[in-house]
Design a protein around this nucleic acid. Structure first.
Lengths: 327, 327
DNA sequence: CTGAAAGCGCTAACAA
DNA sequence: TTGTTAGCGCTTTCAG
């Protein structure tokens, strides 16, 4: 920067200003500086800048995994928005492990991320403490809670599952099975199961443990699980899968076995995977703003990082039941 | 750090050493320092460390998009490997635009990433120049080239497409259509199309323009495209799709229309999407080490960042034809 | 094995 | 509008 300044015949702070706040520099000087920058092939050192300004223009995003189009879409939304504002994203994957999440949080705090985005609302006590003390904006996304660390942006997984179960009942289904996920340390999956159970209770239908199967989210498991469910409970008339991955795997398995969907068994999913509308039969599901969660998270973060008090601590982006052919 | 040092009764450099090179500190002093760190709730400032050491322990990864399980799996592989070695990942998405890629490269160079990972081998001249001058390890992944900027790690998209086309011919198909992607600034897609054409030439089959359709990669486009292809060229006996997304969309469309696959039309894909093995009929495809590309990229980077001269500049991870039911 | 001194390359705060 | 001064919080280098 000193070299550039000398070449342009100004002081180094003027170089700094033409880079950060060009509107504070006379157009003429600005042009000289810009010319000098090009001539030197000068690449500013933002780590020095971050140290001096105590601001890294960096946001850390921690998701359980990126090999899952749900979170991938959201991460895309966050990066699209933040990059447009000069921020860059540190990506970390916790592998659904709150201890891994905790060590990522530490690492990103050490790197002085200006803000942090976590997935879900269950975190280790240390994670919460670190984040509350950090004094930076924190977003918990993909679920809601009345007491976020700082902000919560997403939708109610509980309500979404509850509404879908009620929707199935409204279509006449009574023996409704549940294809759930692994609930340990996964509040989204846990709340979806709770929503299903709450709906059954409202409907006066007794919950039956052998109408429930829990399994990791992947296509083959959807197939295995529906076969298991129907062999345990042959009289089931519908199955609500807590994720489209499972629902699609289940439909494909039914197709292979020649079980007609929905006449033998109705199947509904959740997340609105792009594939669901292409299948035969087309999948009934819950639409969720996967990409939109990312952009809204980004917007709120930018607002907060600009020093504006955020309008809301809890942002409910909602969901929508999409009825198609599989129910 | 000074506070921690005072509390432990040592100088601050000793605190630094117990953090970075604990083996150079007597166990007794080390324990005192560690106790003091806990007591203070001290969070080291790695941006100061990066500035002083001229090393950020940060790697930038630029992919066209993360909303695509191919690159998402690779990014997962890279982060898994790098996080295990104390490195963290800056993620950028270029949206298949070499100008966006260029500005991300600049930005990450300003942030002093210790290494850079790009997708593919076509980049702007400025991108190449910046990277060559940067003096950091650079990986171009997902394709091969005899003249990488620094390292190329992936497989030959050309050979993969060529071999699949030859494979289809070996199964007796002669009128082979091609469902390709958008080739502009996308060397992977372009090389897949070149591989298809090269195979036809070897087979002595004339390439026919109306046996080719190019379209963005998504499920619905696969369906649209196969319908278009078969209406333009009703006598086609096979279609090679340059990506499983397209192939799956095509199979689902055939299923909807009641066109039997492969007896009316054979369909082969590429990338080995997890869904391909669940469909009816199961998809013939080219298996590619999506996650493995990421871990190998990570391994080579770590090696280089440790100062070892990397064993190889070009790493061919290969591919494998997987014959299933759709051909 | 531990410490003192110097400085990494910027920007904040204040002054002109 | 531009410049001066003083650090930001570490690690390097060299010394003991």
């Amino acid at each position: 920067m000193v070299d550039v300044a000398q070449l342009a015949g100004v002081s180094s702070i003027t170089v700094s200003r033409t880079l950060l706040t060009p509107e504070l520099v006379t157009p003429a000087t600005r042009r000289m500086v810009e010319k000098a920058i090009k001539q030197c092939g000068y690449i500013p050192n933002r780590v020095a800048g971050s140290l001096a300004a105590n601001r890294s223009r960096t946001v850390a995003v921690i998701v359980p995994t990126i090999s899952n189009s749900l979170f991938a879409d959201t991460v895309q939304g966050i990066t699209d928005l933040l990059e447009a504002h000069g921020y860059h994203v540190f990506l970390g994957t916790s592998n659904y492990d709150i201890k891994e999440e905790e060590s990522l949080v530490s690492a990103f705090l050490e790197r002085r991320a200006d803000a942090m985005v976590l997935t879900g609302i269950s975190h280790s006590p240390t994670t919460k403490k670190l984040l509350r003390n950090a004094g930076i904006p924190v977003v918990e996304m993909w679920n809601l809670t009345p007491r976020p660390i700082d902000m919560a942006i997403g939708f109610s997984n509980f309500e979404a599952a509850r509404k879908m179960t009620l929707f199935l009942a409204s279509r006449g289904y009574r023996k409704i099975g549940f294809l759930g996920g692994v609930t340990e340390n996964n509040d989204r999956t846990r709340d979806r199961e709770r929503g299903y159970l709450a709906a059954l209770a409202e409907l006066g239908i007794a919950a039956v443990e052998n109408r429930i199967v829990r399994t990791p989210f992947d296509f083959p498991m959807g197939g295995t699980a529906i076969a298991a469910l129907l062999s345990k409970s042959p009289s089931l008339d519908a199955v609500f899968a807590a994720s489209d991955v499972l629902a699609i795997g289940a439909i494909l398995e039914c197709n292979r076995r020649g079980w007609p969907v929905p006449s033998k068994i109705a199947i509904a999913g959740m997340d609105d995977s792009p594939l669901g509308s292409q299948l035969s039969p087309k999948l009934t599901t819950v639409r969720i703003p996967r990409y939109g969660i990312g952009t809204v998270v980004g917007e709120h973060l930018i607002e907060r990082l600009r020093g504006q008090a955020s309008s809301k601590r809890i942002v409910d982006l909602g969901f929508e039941i999409v009825e198609r052919e599989s129910t």
